[in-house]
Each structure stands twice: as structure tokens, then as C-alpha cells.
Simulated assay, not measured.
Amino acid sequence: MSHTIFVTVYLVVMGLLIVGVDVLFLREHFWLRLGVNVGIVAVFALAYLLLLRDAFK
């Protein structure tokens, strides 16, 4: 699997997780939803930078 395909799948999974959490749990809570979304993106970015960036070298 090439690096570009992996990153694309990684971003799609992150997007689906964000949308799923928004729709299922946080529909009426704007600030909490924003905070959770930022947290999800931060966790995915940290996981990519620390664990997955060097997987294709």
C-alpha cells in the first residue's frame, strides 16, 4: 500500500469518526462538540507523527 493511499484512508477514517461522534452524541452541544473534534484531530495527528510517519520509509 502506498503512502498516499494510506494517508487518504487515515483521513477518511478520522472524518467518519468525527461525523459519527457528532451525530450520535454531541448534536446539541456546540462547544463540547468543537472541543471533542479538536481532540480527535490532535490524537490522530499525534499518532501519525509518532507512530506511522516512518512506516513507509
Score class of each variant (00 low, 15 high):
Val43Glu: 12
Asp22Thr: 06
Arg27Gly: 05
Gly15Pro: 01
Gly15Tyr: 05
Ile40Pro: 00
Gly39Asp: 05
Phe6Lys: 01
Leu32Trp: 07
Tyr10Cys: 03
Gly39Trp: 03
Leu16Glu: 06
Ile18Leu: 04
Val43Asn: 07
Leu34Arg: 09
Thr8Leu: 11
Leu49Asn: 13
Leu17Trp: 04
Ala42Leu: 14
Leu52Cys: 06
Phe6Asn: 01
Asp54Val: 06
Ile18Val: 13
Asp54Ala: 10
Leu34Cys: 05
Val13Ile: 12
Arg53Trp: 07
Phe44Lys: 02
Ile18Gln: 07
Phe30Lys: 10
Val41Phe: 07
Ala42Pro: 03
Arg27Val: 05
Lys57Trp: 07
Asp54Gly: 13
Leu24Gly: 01
Val23Ile: 11
Leu11Pro: 02
Met14Cys: 12
Leu16Gly: 12
Arg33Pro: 02
Ala45Ile: 14
Gly20Leu: 05
Leu11Asp: 15
Phe56Tyr: 15
Leu11Gly: 06
Leu50Arg: 13
Arg33Tyr: 01
Gly15Ile: 03
Ile40Tyr: 02
Asp22Ser: 11
Tyr48Phe: 15
Leu50Glu: 15
Leu11Cys: 14
Arg53Phe: 08
Ile40Arg: 00
Leu46Glu: 06
Gly39Cys: 05
Asn37Gly: 10
Ala45Met: 14
Leu50Ser: 13
Arg33Ala: 08
Leu26Ala: 03
Asn37Thr: 08
Val7Ser: 03
Leu11Met: 12
Met14Gly: 03
Glu28Gln: 10
Leu34Val: 08
Leu34Ala: 11
Val9Pro: 00
Arg53Glu: 14
Ile5Gly: 05
Trp31Phe: 07
Thr8Ala: 12
Ala47Met: 10
Thr8Asn: 13
Phe25Thr: 07
Leu49Trp: 09
Leu49Lys: 10
Leu34Trp: 08
Asp54Phe: 05
Val43Pro: 06
Ala55Phe: 14
Asn37Lys: 03
Arg33Gly: 01
Arg33Lys: 15
Lys57Ser: 15
Glu28Ala: 09
Val12Glu: 11
Ser2Gly: 14
Gly35Ile: 09
Phe44Thr: 03
Ala45Arg: 07
Leu17Met: 13
Ala47Glu: 10
Phe56Pro: 03
Ile18His: 00
Phe25Leu: 15
Leu50Phe: 12
Phe6Glu: 03
Leu17Pro: 00
Phe6Cys: 05
Asn37Tyr: 02
Val41Ile: 15
Arg33Ser: 11
Ala45Cys: 15
Val41Lys: 00
Leu52Tyr: 04
Phe56Gln: 09
Phe25Val: 08
Gly15Ser: 13
Thr8Gln: 13
Leu52Asn: 00
Leu52Gly: 01
Leu17Gly: 00
Val23Thr: 10
Ser2Trp: 05
Leu32Gly: 06
Gly39Thr: 09
Phe6Tyr: 14
Val9Ala: 09
Leu26Thr: 04
Met1Leu: 14
